[in-house]
Amino acid sequence: MSDHTYSPAQGQSVLWMRLLLWALLILFAIWFLLPAYVVVGTSLKDLEEIRGGSLLALPHELNFSAWKHAWNEACIGVRCTGLEPYFWNSVFMALPAVFISTLLGALTGYALTKFQFRGANMIFALILFGCFVPFQVVILPMAQTLGRLGITNTVYGLILVHSVYGLAFTTLFFRNYYVTIPDELVRAATIDGAGFFTIFRRIILPLSPPIIVVSVIWQFTQIWNDFLFGASFTTGGAQPITVAMNNLVNTTTGVKQYNVDMAAALITAAPTLFVYIVAGRYFVRGLTAGSVKG
């Protein structure tokens, strides 16, 4: 609308609208940033400064001792190891689960779209509903199954759980992406005698990097941030970092160390925030792909 000419009165009202617009944008930005500011600020203060000063005051100096404490000294339950071992638990849980669910999702999505066999749509609908099942409904049988398999309270148990329940989402991502690849490509290759896996490797995979990135980021964020499964199937040393962090914050022995709590929260949030900042574009695409079906 820049090609309009405004009368002076109109020009003034446009100016006011712009000011109002920016005021609102900044106000919301403050609201979104407030927790980040408070958490980072608190994690850099010592306890005296926290008790004596204002929540919103800047720290007097950059004091990282709370971070160090949260990383390898703080007590989680009775174990005073800091978050470090739990951080690695989460890493060793997330990486295989992301890989397995993404690979299976890609293959399933490919088979469901490029080889429309009978019942393919029904199968997709049944898998899709798996995205929306409240996990409370699978927890009890899963606990029993993990027990029978002998992998209760291990990282392997959580890898299995996250691979299975991530599969519904990854299948959705890949299926919706592969639908947009022209069938002619696959048909031409079939006529040339290429088989299922050859086509996947030579034609489909080279076209897939964007959706692979979306799937990996989505799965990593979901699995890293999971709390329910971690809290239900693990205790003690096998816990993922979200559960350990929550226990650290709620451990009530001794003086409440708010700075350590906040440093722990930051350490827990760091990997997914890092991914978001580096690859935010794909993250947003995953969010919208996961919600607007088709």
Binding site: F32, Y258, T272
Partner: peptide, 26 residues
């Protein structure tokens, strides 16, 4: 980017942060 970053973190972190902001004395 500012408006969307909360979506990248766990509800556990969100809860911990707001609990601290809502701390009655500090």
């Amino acid at each position: 980017t500012i408006y969307l970053y909360p979506m990248a973190i766990s509800f556990i972190i969100t809860g911990t942060a707001w609990k601290w902001i809502m701390n009655p004395s500090l």
